[in-house]
Design a protein around this nucleic acid. Structure first.
Lengths: 354, 354
DNA sequence: TCAGTTTACACAATCGATTGCGTAAAAATC
DNA sequence: GATTTTTACGCAATCGATTGTGTAAACTGA
């Protein structure tokens, strides 16, 4: 019948039991100075009365929110959503909530979101930078307040923070070298924005592989774009209509690589015989396209888990220790889009599962 | 040099300006009773001193957290991550944070997560139920406390809450009828767990289409599974080795459907000539597989947006109004995996983009 | 048995912002 | 100029839990 059910507080419990709120609070927290029976009684009554601790009040006193903020470009991307999944997993186990927000790859939005999360007093921040982020002042408040920041995947070396990354250079190098080993002599590259570390590093790895094997680096074969499917398609058309077209494409992501395969096929180019293709990320589409796409596997979930662990670790080591960079292993997944030699036959080891 | 930078509070500002904290608080909130100059001065100084409101203290007083909780099975699924993306979008614009948590499709975890979010005092809850959730007591505390609950996609009609769903029955009916119109006479169905509404409704829609067109419903052709790629593959093998195999498969999701295509092709069955296939969800893989998969488009992002709006709306209408169910439109996307008549030639309208 | 220890609990301040109520000072009214 | 009305702001309680300090009562040991 009571319309406004007031929430039960420790005072209500205290009154009922004729003890002080202090005692109730301590009992609920298993403080040693409270008698066994009292503790039992308090807990019992608390449950009966449907008490739930007011973590806002508690948070005010203890200056805690139990929240970790996450800023990513878009949640609905295969890599990102797996990353978040990993973050949520360890954060939850440590008793933290995960607040997500997306920058939509916009610098301005990233700033806004960073401010919002700061105002929300998150106890840690995990960021995968927006495509066009070039300055980092919006993270300074965190720094000044000693709030752990961890950069993941798309990071900046201008800021000294913990980072969780992969070795993009090596991965790209490996993929490119693989194409070379498959006999490709003229390898094109779908590159991303060069101010974003991952794309720069991938391009560098690609170039390094060419150089190591004494292949010329032809600027004409390096196409910069946002790596969307459309751009992949357009780029492929462009490349294949060159007077001296490439015999392989190494794309900095899978979307564009898949488009390349589709476009080339439509143009009657055989893959991998006439054009070998390799991508990056091991998205699900990479194993579905025909022929299946050779790509780099990215340990997305692990990166998320480790990023969250870094936040927790930093919170422990109150005194600013050296910032740490964790580099995770990647793996070249060889599929048919690049298998030009007759030795390789069936699909190789693959982490295909659902 | 100061090691522990204490945070600036309204008291600090008040002192500096020789006014009361009350005035500062009101000035910052543009209260009418505070003079123009005073307000200006307060805001100016606040900015200079690097003041940030303590939303915990404010939240305690106003009993607000500005947080909306979300429980989903797995964040890293195409449909789910898009859903969340939509939620975050409107929640953020309304000044709310989104706390995500995943049930991993486990009933027990769903309970735990619901409790955690309840303890965190989220002001609203958006849920897509776990696969094996059959009771709903864990949501009662929300109900008792008048905290808005919105079910999305995987819902339960046992609980009266706002819901955002699609018409699975109609969508499945449409897809199945499409297969029938393409000349298929013996259509199999990959079905999911029948206690989860969406899979039950899809199966019902499938059956209804068969009946409408006087086709027999053969239990042998209805395979229940978790709809994973493995299960899709196994199911296809089983179906195709029947003495009287089906000439079409309607799968309740795209993963299993794609596997069906792959498996059938490997077995030398031509698609769609010998086996037409249709899926559900319009995942990216559906447009990549060959032949491209006919499927049902699911407005995931919109569902998320609307779910968030429902939460906000409920918060406004304090008095329990009737709970509302929003049913979103789906769309049959016809691709080549089902195009058996010679009329249809090129790919039809498709929402292919990146 | 009495000083010294433990045990078990209460007091009251505190975290920072909000808000109902009250009131001097300034402005308006006649 | 006296009175009423506005304007602009302060006082103090409040939100609910936490915690340093203080203290009766119970217990210990010689």
């Amino acid at each position: 019948m009571k319309k406004k059910k007031k929430e039960v507080t420790i005072y209500d419990i205290a009154e009922e039991l004729n003890v002080s709120a202090t005692t109730v609070s301590r009992a609920l927290n298993d403080h040693f100075s409270i008698g066994k029976k009292t503790t039992q009684a308090v807990k019992k009554l608390a449950k009966e009365m449907g008490y739930r601790p007011n973590i806002i009040a508690s948070g005010l006193r203890k200056n805690k929110t139990n929240a970790i903020g996450v800023i990513v470009s878009w949640i609905n991307r295969p890599f990102i959503s797996s990353l978040i999944s990993g973050i949520e997993d360890v954060a939850d186990k440590a008793g933290y909530n995960v607040i997500i927000s997306q920058s939509n790859d916009s610098f301005e939005k990233e700033i806004t979101k960073a401010q919002t999360l700061y105002a929300s007093r998150v106890e840690g921040l995990i960021v995968s930078l927006a495509m066009d982020t070039k300055s980092y002042n919006h993270f300074y408040p965190y720094r000044q307040n000693n709030i752990p920041i961890v950069f993941v995947d798309r990071v900046s070396f201008e800021m000294e923070t913990d980072k969780v990354i992969i070795n993009n250079f090596d991965a790209a190098f490996t993929a490119t070298e693989h194409l070379i080993e498959m006999g490709c002599k003229r390898i094109a590259h779908f590159a991303g924005a060069q101010h974003r570390n991952i794309y720069k590093e991938r391009q560098d790895g690609y170039i390094h592989a060419l150089k190591k094997h004494n292949l010329p680096v032809d600027e004409q074969l390096i196409l910069h774009s946002n790596l969307s499917m459309e751009e992949g398609w357009k780029g492929t058309r462009r490349l294949l209509s060159l007077s001296h077209p490439p015999d392989a494409i190494f794309s900095a992501n899978d979307s564009a690589a898949v488009s390349a395969i589709q476009c080339a096929k439509e143009m009657g180019i055989r893959i991998p015989e006439e054009l070998a293709v390799a991508g990056f990320n091991n998205d699900r589409i990479s194993s579905i396209v025909e022929p299946p796409l050779t790509t780099i596997n990215h340990p997305a979930i692990d990166m998320g888990k480790i990023a969250a662990q870094q936040v927790l670790k930093q919170k422990k080591n109150r005194e600013m220790v050296e910032s740490e960079t964790v580099i995770l292993k990647t793996e070249l997944i060889i599929r048919q889009s690049s298998m030009r030699n007759r030795l390789a036959k069936g699909p190789t080891s693959d982490s295909e599962s659902c």
